[in-house]
Simulated scan of single mutants.
Amino acid sequence: MDSALERHCSELVARERSGHTAVLRENLLYVWGGYMSVADDEIFLPNDEIWKYDLEQGVWEVFHMKGEVPPSMSGTCGCSLNEHMYIFGGCDDNGQTNQIYCVDLTDGNYTWRKIIHDIGSAPSPRDKLSCWVYNGRIIYFGGYGHKLLSSVDSENKTFIVDEASWVGDVFWGWNNEVHIFDPTQASWTEPRIHGRAPAPRAAHASATLGSKGYICGGRVMETRTSDIHCLDLVSWTWTEIVPVSTIPVGRSWHTLSAVSENTLFLFGGLSVDCKPMSDGWVLDVETRQWREVEHPYKNKPRLWHTACLGKDSDVIVFGGSCDYILLVDTGHCNDALVFQLQPYPLFRICEDFIAKNVRKCELLRNRLPLLPPKLLTSVQKRMSFYRPTRKQQQ
């Protein structure tokens, strides 16, 4: 793996956090929610602000949000569809929720809208679930939450009760349910599933490749796994992928990103023995082979972070914790780690070279005004990204 970047170029920087939502639109990373630690307290981040990070310029901005603002939460399932950010589920001061909200990322108003479904029934309240976006719909899987005992399907075992958590006839536990939300119809449906479904779980990771949704690992009752399962989003058939090579250790609170037509990138998480992880792995879903990759962030373990796919197959990891949050809960982060997983195009190599070296090369500085206006603007943005920070200037 080639060198990666870790930058905060602006004076304004998003607060450190874990369990947040992040989506990428063009070269802009949007971050909302999550929580952090202050002294011995866990504090939810403000629900009425959204942070935007320009990946080309390295500049953060924060915006006030309006409308039907959701509660401050962590563990929501966020995604981007039709240039809107959707969040579903999560945990607030009252426990898990099953509400869904969206916000338009294009108009600059950042107005939340709570979606009231017209068709079907919403999933039960849950957090630490995942989703796939396919064919204009959002498909949700798994999570940890609560149900009435009367709605627990003990025969099909789609919900495993957490024996340590129940009050009266309300039970908490893990599920492996699949629910489809269609924004155009404001509808919830459950497809008829075929094949052997993965065990109920939460804090797993997911990614979409073409018409197939993948999940990896997660918390399954009292253990953490590294198993891989694929759901065909057309036939609704589950298939387990059995690797033919060395596999990553079991983990939860990690991320999985699609970086090519047939490869997935796994990063970080919390291991079976509760160790924060900093390893990176690539899975070829066709050959079923895992390959550990070298990267510059071996000293930066992360769990309950977010990962978004950027241009040229970069993976942008933001936030998360660097310690075992169930015990210590002090090491929340706010840096953006950019992983390069594919060779860059020649244009980007040239643009970055100029931006990195123009300040120390007189020849480049003199030739810069000769660039076409559009190209000059692009290079100037990258120069902003690589400009020395105040700390570096001191």
Rank of each mutant, 00 (worst) to 15 (best):
I193W: 03
I180D: 03
G210H: 04
E163I: 00
N176W: 04
F181V: 05
W166Q: 10
W172Y: 15
D169M: 12
P191N: 08
A207P: 06
A164R: 11
D162N: 12
G213Q: 01
G195K: 02
S165V: 04
L209C: 01
T184S: 15
V178W: 00
V167N: 13
F181T: 03
Y214M: 02
T184Y: 13
Y214I: 02
F181W: 08
A203E: 14
G213D: 04
R192M: 14
A164D: 12
V167Q: 12
H179W: 08
N175F: 10
I180Y: 05
G195W: 04
T208N: 06
D162C: 05
F171T: 00
A202C: 15
I180E: 03
W174I: 09
V170I: 15
D182Y: 10
A203S: 15
S187N: 08
R201D: 09
V167T: 13
D182E: 14
F171R: 03
S211L: 04
S211Q: 05
S211G: 11
P183K: 10
P198W: 05
A164K: 14
V178H: 00
W174E: 07
S211A: 13
K212A: 10
D169Q: 14
A197Q: 10
A186H: 15
V167R: 12
D182A: 13
D162K: 02
G210M: 03
H194F: 12
H204P: 08
P191W: 00
V161T: 06
W188L: 10
T189V: 10
P198N: 04
Q185K: 15
P200C: 08
V161Y: 01
I193T: 03
P191M: 01
V161E: 03
P200K: 05
V161S: 02
E190P: 01
A186F: 14
V167C: 11
S187K: 08
P200Y: 06
V178K: 00
D162Y: 00
A207L: 07
E190Y: 00
A202H: 14
E177G: 06
A207E: 07
V167A: 11
V178F: 00
Y214K: 02
